[in-house]
Nucleic acid binder design. Structure first.
Lengths: 345, 345
DNA sequence: GTGAAAGCGCTAACAT
DNA sequence: ATGTTAGCGCTTTCAC
């Protein structure tokens, strides 16, 4: 006899209704059957509080309906904004996500691939730390669909899906808009250059300057670390080394917050004393006066595309992996003005 | 014959080594055996690239090694700070977490309990939206251990674990420290009072004032919503209604950020013009000058205790659910000063 | 439309 | 120390 705490199984429903487990299973999976039987089954299910044992089903069908997600840091609004959309959309399709934080540690990242494969995940979404993509090989050789998020990995074309943002383009446009206002001494606060996103933003900055015939002044480029503290210190450093700097462009949210606070604390007015273009349209950018001109990355879209792509791959194993690049937009505020020396002319 | 993409099974290893599946299973689960056989198995495992089918194992043993986690919002550093520790510790014990964001929607929260139970999670950790705990009943009746995080739910004592922070106490101490400096007009920015944390912080504020014989002035209490915008607007509102206010105490991280920026923008100096005690020692508090006096909640500890408790419950089903209350601390900076009118006396 | 039976990969008696 | 065997709950032929 089945104890009070043991959940009911198909067999119990079969016994209760006098039907076979096969029939009930089929019904549960969408088959049609005699009205009388349908009702009997529904009744038995309610009476015995039956729910499908997804574990047995997954075991039988060899699919878990779980997507593994490996990210470098959960404590990051840029990342969670993407995850929220992904999770919501995947759950609507009856998939759940297993999030693993590798703490920006490439060795742990590699381990986590194995961890997730051991958990029989149906697919893997990864914002990679390891730039070579070497860590993804075990998943690929097991034919588990892999999607790489927000960072470029070369050498795996055609084997993985890739959702990217056109960082070079948006950085170029942002810096160009500063140049158009007359700025020549434009500070850039950039993240670690082992990430393709940082390199591309730097490249966009260089392109904009080059196309206007402005020589790049290396002392205007602060190499930072994507943190609030990093942004704060970089801004202070840039100011000290470049008294003539008239505009500054931090290139992620935390550094935007840090450098914004540094400016406020030094009583440097935006845009009167310093023009400012921030990054990522979250928290801070919703309250500042003047409203910030800001690079708005389509984070929700990133999450949605990632979820859609992995679902497509799962539905049709023959689907070919592709790379999708989304455009960011420049949200215009009033934190960019005409630089002093131009006004004076 | 097993196709190239089908993963190897115990049977394959058995065939390869000439041993039985039982022996290999036992070895995999820690049993000792003849050195010769051990080597043969290791070799076969490597040759066939075998990994345990966790799905079959979980099915057989009726445990998934998955903890379901339901939170009101992933886009929240307070929450992710807790999750990071939880995830790390649980994974070290070979558990993974399935995170579901209910978007502060009680109906979705209830649904997610069913979703997770259907996924056969071994336990559930929940920072609840629903204050009655009604949504947890299905989990409890299935004997799935439930742990409630950071919020009090009454009526479920002895049935659920509960990890809390002593909000009343820390709020009282924070406000007391302002009173000790001579402040009498102390603004409070509080979150939605449907959460026990908000009510307790408000209670702590009241207690501190009462114990010093100060009458509570309702116009000094701003009921806000835990967001950056909310903090910004609440600060502006408090200032307008209370020109005599000499100190302000926002009670979560986002509202701390919002009100801090509002002060900066109005050129109100901290602590000269306004004393300030912030909440949650993250991002902002690491860069401000002067360093903020701040309520530091033990977020990492919260995550660690939650993980430990649920692991204990899983290891020993007879373990009795308990409630643990952690103390927050007041990190002293220099954002609190002596109010003007006292200096003048 | 319905049922009988096989089997997914693993573990746990139980036997040797 | 190792093998035999049954069976977890489900889906899926293949009959009828």
């Amino acid at each position: 006899m089945r104890s009070i705490t043991m959940p009911a199984t198909l067999k119990d429903i079969a016994k209760e209704t006098g039907l076979s487990t096969a029939t009930i299973s089929k019904y549960l999976n969408g088959a049609k059957l005699r009205e009388k039987n349908r009702i009997a089954i529904e009744q038995a299910i309610r009476k015995l509080d039956y729910t499908v044992n997804e574990y047995a089903r997954g075991f039988k069908l060899n699919r878990s309906h779980i997507i593994g997600v490996i990210i470098p840091d959960l404590n990051n609004l840029f990342i969670t904004n993407i995850l929220v959309q992904m999770e919501t959309l995947l759950r609507e399709h009856d998939y759940s996500i297993m999030i693993c934080d590798c703490h920006t540690d490439a060795a742990l990242e590699r381990e986590l691939i194995h961890f997730l494969l051991g958990r029989m995940v149906d697919g893997i979404i990864n914002m990679p730390v390891c730039a070579t993509g070497e860590h993804l090989k075990p998943a690929l050789s097991k034919k588990v669909p892999v999607l790489v998020l927000d960072r470029m990995i070369s050498g795996l074309e055609g084997q993985i899906d890739n959702i990217l943002i056109d960082n070079a383009s948006i950085a170029r446009r942002a810096v160009q808009s500063l140049i158009d206002q007359g700025h020549r001494q434009i500070g850039l606060i950039i993240g670690p250059t082992d990430y393709s996103t940082s390199r591309e933003r730097l490249e966009g900055y260089r392109q904009a300057l080059a196309s206007s015939g402005i020589t790049v002044n290396d002392s205007l480029i602060a190499y930072s670390d994507f943190t609030v503290e990093g942004g704060y210190e970089s801004l202070c450093h840039l100011l000290k080394c470049n008294p003539n700097m008239t505009a500054v462009f931090p290139t992620n949210y935390d550094m935007t917050l840090g450098s914004f606070i540094a400016l406020k604390e030094q009583n440097i007015r935006i845009p009167d004393d310093m023009s400012f273009i921030g990054f990522d349209d979250m928290g801070l950018s919703r309250v500042t006066h003047p409203p910030l001109t800001i690079v708005a990355q389509p984070l929700e879209q990133l999450g949605i595309y990632a979820a859609r792509r992995i679902l497509s791959r799962l539905e049709d194993p023959d689907e070919v992996p592709i790379s999708i690049t989304l455009s960011a937009s420049l949200k215009i505020g009033t934190s960019v003005g005409v630089p002093r020396h131009v006004e004076d002319e």
